[in-house]
């Protein structure tokens, strides 16, 4: 038991800097994932076939290729093709674009959950289709999919370990933990603290989304 606390206090700087890197990685990726996810969802529900097609191709590409493969292509493949990519760009872009495909799908299901009557009511008031989308459909779609978004964010936090564990080797919580492990050989103790670190992030996300759900829930 004392060894557990010892390894933490001795290597606190590594653990905390790793946690901080993971947090930033997740935060930046989340912004990318939301922005791209909303855009792709909008394409997928637009009343124009070729826009749907583009959105569909995006989702099927990024949902069907493993994150690790995306990371290898971005970090190892692209530089070879003459496009230099930094650790941070590769990590946040891959994690963000990968998660965006799932967020787009969640939002799309939320859009379809908004009743036809809601759209007709907005149109009958003289609102244009884009305005109806922005004021009536998307706000309700978001509220409907808050729980689903919460699950996706938790999955993204855990997936972020792949960035540190892969050849991208961003010094995130996983990467730092491995370094401490190589230093001390206390595998059980150091990975216990890695698990705690990820739990701190995922539980915070859980609470945040529970609050959002409570705050913005639609009572019908």
């Amino acid at each position: 038991m004392s060894e557990l606390w010892e390894v933490l206090s001795e290597h606190l700087p590594e653990f905390s800097s790793g946690l901080w890197v993971t947090f930033r990685l997740v935060a930046i990726s989340f912004v990318i994932a939301m922005a791209v996810g909303i855009l792709i969802a909008a394409l997928r529900v637009a009343p124009v076939r070729w826009l749907n097609r583009i959105g569909g191709i995006y989702v099927e590409t990024f949902r069907n290729v493993p994150l690790l493969v995306l990371l290898i292509i971005a970090f190892s493949g692209l530089p070879r093709a003459g496009v230099p990519v930094s650790q941070w760009v590769a990590g946040t872009a891959c994690l963000g674009l990968y998660t965006a495909a799932y967020i787009a799908e969640a939002l799309r299901s939320g859009v379809f959950a908004v009743g036809r009557g809601q759209i007709e009511a907005a149109l009958s008031l003289g609102l244009s289709y884009p305005r109806t989308m922005r004021r009536i459909i998307l706000p309700q779609a978001f509220r409907t999919v808050i729980p689903a978004l919460g699950s996706l964010v938790i999955a993204m936090i855990k997936n972020s370990a792949i960035v540190g564990g892969s050849l991208v080797a961003l010094p995130d919580l996983l990467k730092q933990t491995r370094e401490v492990q190589a230093d001390t050989f206390q595998t059980n103790e150091v990975f216990f603290w890695a698990a705690v670190g990820y739990l701190i992030l995922t539980l915070t996300a859980t609470l945040a989304f529970r609050y959002l759900e409570h705050r913005y829930a639609i009572r019908r």
Binding site: G117, A121, S124, L125, G126, Q140
Partner: peptide
């Protein structure tokens, strides 16, 4: 523009719940 001059009331009310 025409729709803005014609009001409509639906069987299911269709108020915006948010």
């Amino acid at each position: 523009g025409i729709r803005a001059e014609i009001g409509m009331v639906f069987q299911q009310f269709n108020l915006f719940p948010h």
